[in-house]
Design a protein around this nucleic acid. Structure first.
Lengths: 217, 217
DNA sequence: ATACACATACCGACCGGTCGGTCGGTGGGC
DNA sequence: GCCCACCGACCGACCGGTCGGTATGTGTAT
């Protein structure tokens, strides 16, 4: 690579590093205490800088939170889409999506926490945000279900409502797992939840018993 | 009816009336603006009294909210239990529970709102509360499912997890309906959701098609 | 190289506003 | 004459965001 190998970092580099540092600190603080209960001073302290320093990099508290939620949701959605793309058969695709979400949350509990924080600690401001987030994921599910209906492998159901219901079920299971002190590992509930959801759209027991695929991407 | 027919009410009566008035005002304000965004002054104003007046009847803001949630949840639970008691067949019982919740919410949107407010606007304080509330209803569902499993009319599933998942699905569908501006009537989604849930525990299509019962209590 | 000009990153005291809760007072019914 | 119900000014803590100031680069002309 260029000159200045690992030497005194340039201003731009230090700036981006600090920004990241603040994002990290905010992530952890929001994750542990919720949005409303997190003070800017706390974020500043956790990032080992000052409130002024934080406000140099971000315009408002809300902006920090939004960026965090957005990037986190993006990462999760991308991971799901990657996993789904590896499958061609409709049921296997829906299944891959479910597995990816569940196992990703299982591996990154804090990630799950952040995506649930706004529902737990934010005020009216974020209802629209939360709504949009839920819509996005419920919509993803619905589109996979549409494929499956089209292919005739599941019943011709109301995929919109089903997407919402599936998302809700998943949401609640994960939320429960987040709130309990020493939760059972999330991946142990996966087979049960999978069977429950697939059955709900008319997949045969035989087809459900036939589990698919290996580890997630 | 004793003497003093509708005449100047006694002090105790006026006191209880005021208390109710405050509860009412708090209910409406919490329902519209969420817990955190509701100021005691607003409640006082809505109850046509003063902040001091409110604090004469209630020790803290939290106490008001708790009482509201408790009595509301109690009313709903009682209604569900009454509806369930009218049925003897396990599937019909679970079905009655679902119908009652959905149709009660459909008829009392504000009631639904209050039960969801704590998740929307409260801070850490109520996580335990919310958790307990969810537990309670998920537990109710699970116990009905247990009956059904016992009777052999549904598959021998993990009723605990299923209770959580059903509750989550229901929860999300209702929440969605609360947040959308002009929602489709909740009772139109009932048949679809009912079929979805019943299928998920292995009830046959034939049995699902056979809808039960008349209007709710 | 040196000096100067300017921007960038950061600090922390401070401000303005909000809000839960308190308290001294008051008036009307018993 | 006492006390219940009520009033509303007030308190103190908290918190998001601002601002004047500083110090450390960074580019440029000499």
């Amino acid at each position: 690579m260029g000159r200045n190998e690992g030497r005194t970092p340039t201003q731009a580099e230090r700036s981006r590093a600090r920004r990241e540092q603040i994002l990290d600190a905010a992530f952890h603080t929001f994750t542990r205490r919720g949005y409303r209960d997190t003070a800017m001073d706390e974020i500043a302290a956790a990032a080992e800088t000052s409130k002024g320093g934080v406000y140099f990099h971000f315009p408002t508290k809300e902006a920090i939170f939004r960026e965090l939620v957005r990037t986190t949701a993006d990462r999760l959605a991308a991971k799901v889409e990657r996993a789904v793309a590896e499958q061609t058969e409709p049921i296997a695709r829906a299944d891959a999506a479910l597995r990816t979400v569940l196992l990703t949350f299982a591996g990154h509990r804090t990630m799950a926490r952040l995506l649930f924080v706004d529902a737990m600690g934010a005020g009216r401001v974020f209802n629209a945000e939360t709504n949009a987030l839920h819509d996005r994921f419920a919509g993803m599910i619905a589109s996979y279900l549409d494929e499956a209906v089209e292919a005739g492998v599941i019943l011709p159901i109301d995929t919109g409502l089903t997407g919402v219901a599936w998302f809700g079920a998943l949401n609640e299971v994960v939320a429960r797992w987040l709130l309990v002190d020493d939760p059972a590992p999330l991946d142990t509930v996966y087979p049960t939840l999978r069977a429950l959801l697939l059955r709900s759209v008319g997949v045969s027991e035989a087809r459900i018993a036939n589990t698919s695929a290996g580890p997630i991407g």
